[in-house]
Design a protein around this nucleic acid. Sequence first.
DNA 1: GTCTATAGCTCGATAGAC
DNA 2: GTCTATCGAGCTATAGAC
Lengths: 186, 186
Amino acid sequence: MLNIATDTFAARGYNNASLAEIADRAGLTQAGVLHYFRSKSLLLTSVLERRDQGDIEQLGPERPRGLAFLRHLVDTALRNAEREGLVRLYAVLSAESVTEDHPAQAYFRDRYTGLRAFVTDALTEACGLPDPDAPRTRDAANAIIAVMDGLQVQWLLDPDAVAMAASTDLVIRSLLSTLAPDRFSN
Amino acid sequence: MLNIATDTFAARGYNNASLAEIADRAGLTQAGVLHYFRSKSLLLTSVLERRDQGDIEQLGPERPRGLAFLRHLVDTALRNAEREGLVRLYAVLSAESVTEDHPAQAYFRDRYTGLRAFVTDALTEACGLPDPDAPRTRDAANAIIAVMDGLQVQWLLDPDAVAMAASTDLVIRSLLSTLAPDRFSN
DNA sequence: GTCTATAGCTCGATAGAC
DNA sequence: GTCTATCGAGCTATAGAC
């Protein structure tokens, strides 16, 4: 049920997806869907929360740190090329969430805040930097997240023109050798 | 009129924006809007075409080349921080366009194809590379476009957490020194 | 739990008066 | 050119039978 809702939101976006279509695909009526989820926006929230378990940034307490975490991001980009549905869900909804009164706005704001902290920490640790709050580290972290997101949109529109993992890897390596040229040479 | 439509599509996305709201803001009725644009999707097309004149990638035949073009991208990121409406329009619509049967899908596919060619050329020239079709150059070009797009979404959700120009500049510099370490040192 | 039925909207588009 | 009126369709959500 949540899987079907996920696919539908991914294919159509939140606003353009209808409970009737989700219900059809799930083999019941629109009223049936609302029996389990009191409203459409609550269904979206449930979809997003479900997706957070067992995914990218929720790896449990033994999440990899430093360089291992950055490598994990490249791995994720590689695996994402085989998970178009998931990529579509986040690409479509994250951008849609910036529109007025979107029900997923708080979710994505918080998600990015958390991701930024993770990546900033990983960079600081991998590079052995003294100050975890250095603006340049923060800029680099934001850029790494941004490049992964932006590549997804290009890839969804034109899969053959984009190598998500290769581009992600190239950016991370380049940033590392800028932030810590002694540790990471070109 | 097109300006009002632009703002509305930017604030609500295409699907969620209504002709009635656009008409209200423009001071006429919904039927009045359809007198000028035969359909909603034609209005969107007109908005996007209008925006292409005098903007980022349409700088006329004397578009800057090589390093100057890459600097221009950073300038654009800097100016974009003062043009939230325009940023919102492209961030929202580009992601929305990957959904099924979206009227702007062809527009954004073509736009990215053109942008990729521009940035790839600029990188090839700036770095003095022999092969304009090198995969790594293409990966770097895609990454530069992606980082600019991805930063916009983060910035719209949390303006204080993101320095679009600084992050863009950092990525471009880092990539340059990876692609051509002899010309661009850290 | 799942259904039918329906209330109560909003939407895009068209027809036609002025 | 701009309006009113309206069609036909879609939507979310609720009420209530079974």
